[in-house]
Simulated scan of single mutants.
Amino acid sequence: MRILHTSDWHIGRTFHGHSTLDALRGVLEALTDQVRRYDVDVVIVAGDVFDSAAPAAGCYALLTDTLRGIADAGAQVIVTSGNHDSAARLGFQAGLLRDGIHVLTDPAAVGTPITIPDAAGPVHFYGIPYLEPALLRHLWPEARSQAAVLDRAMGLVRDDLARRGGRSVAVAHCFAAGVEPTPHLERDIQQGGLDVVPLQTFAGVDYMALGHIHGRQQLAPHVRYAGAPLHYSFGEGDKPRGSWLVELDADGFAGAEWLELPVPRRVVTLRAPLAEILDDARHAEHEDAWVCVEYTDALPERDPMRRLQARFPFCAKVVHLPAETAERDTRTYVERVRAARSDAELVEAFLVHVRDGAGADDRERELLGEVLDERVRVEALA
């Protein structure tokens, strides 16, 4: 059996204020082409199908078109909900879709598989939707953490599998121990402490398809994250986009191959002085990319976004990160102002406050001295 493992579509997510819907549609069409080209039997979508609990109408249309396209390509589809999804809204789709498309969002049904046979016999697919401990106390009162609810869910999977026999695949959306998250991106499930799920929790199945981390990762030969199909932050720029093509033979897991997906627009971060970024010919290759600029000039530059977008039309983020920063004055601005003994010191306190610790340079002090001296002269004549 051939299984395509994907996750974290985040339909409806924006990229620094820009819609990603059309770009994602093209990528998911390429994924559908892979289903046809590689004769895939089952496609797994391991959670975070939508980016929010209340997606816009166009998001539902894209999901429906994609799932039906995959089914038309000859594969069955198994979809679970993630922490971004509303399980109720995503589950509502289930009754509207045709045979062969399974949307699994009910925690009470965790131990009941979707069984799909191949020439070697049945393969049992256990969908584990994102499990919020606080909302499951009526089912599993003793489970008060992500690790505990996943342990309980996988226990139900193993118990059911022991009765049925055969090969198995489980699908979950969580932080597993050993992953490398994208900083500030995979939110809402806190990494660290009890919310990290130990790797041994996933024992007992032939393949574990995980979602939530946006970069591909292999925690064990049969335990993998596929990552997101599209770049959703500049922190993901170095992470490839694609999905795992998983092979099951008569004995279980037989291997996995990474299938690349197209990148509609590259994501790059440029760090250098602003003038260099604006003028250096080496950056010409990035003029059609999504660009984040971290300019290292000592002082903030005037209107950097407008100037950068003249060269990089898709510059979406500008950050001032001085290569060298002045030593911090631990006093508050009010304390520095009150301590000023002259107009020159008052101006210096203001410049230090608004320029990230950098006071006036020698030329600026000379000009300020001239201005202040002229003011004193005019006041004396008044």
Rank of each mutant, 00 (worst) to 15 (best):
R307S: 07
A326N: 11
V268L: 03
D329R: 02
D280R: 11
A316E: 06
P264R: 01
C315E: 00
P262L: 05
L278D: 06
D297V: 00
I277T: 11
V291S: 02
P300L: 02
A323G: 13
V293K: 09
P273I: 11
E287K: 06
W290K: 08
P304D: 04
A275F: 04
T325K: 13
L321E: 13
E327A: 14
A289C: 04
D279Q: 09
D329V: 03
L299N: 08
R271K: 11
V291E: 03
Y295K: 06
R307V: 02
I277H: 08
E285I: 14
V293F: 08
W290T: 10
E294A: 13
T330N: 12
V267L: 11
A310W: 00
L321A: 12
A272V: 15
A323R: 13
H320F: 09
M305W: 02
L308T: 07
H286S: 06
T330S: 14
V293R: 06
R271E: 15
K317A: 14
R306E: 12
Q309D: 02
Y295N: 05
E287V: 10
R311L: 05
T325S: 14
Q309S: 09
C315T: 08
A316D: 04
A281M: 08
P322I: 10
V267G: 08
E276G: 09
P313R: 04
R306L: 15
R311I: 03
P273R: 04
T325Q: 15
D280E: 03
P262R: 00
M305L: 15
L270R: 05
R265E: 00
C315V: 08
H320E: 06
D279W: 05
A275C: 07
M305H: 07
A284G: 01
A326V: 12
L299K: 05
A310S: 10
P304G: 04
R265W: 01
P322F: 07
A323Y: 08
C315L: 05
D329T: 02
P300S: 00
E324Q: 15
A281I: 08
K317G: 09
Y295S: 03
L270D: 04
R266K: 14
L321Q: 12
D303F: 01
V319L: 13
L321K: 10
P322Y: 00
E276D: 14
L274D: 03
A272P: 14
F314W: 13
R265V: 02
R328H: 13
A272M: 15
T325I: 14
E301N: 14
E327G: 13
L308N: 06
R302P: 08
D279I: 01
A323F: 07
P304M: 06
D329P: 00
V268A: 04
L270Q: 06
L299P: 10
E324C: 10
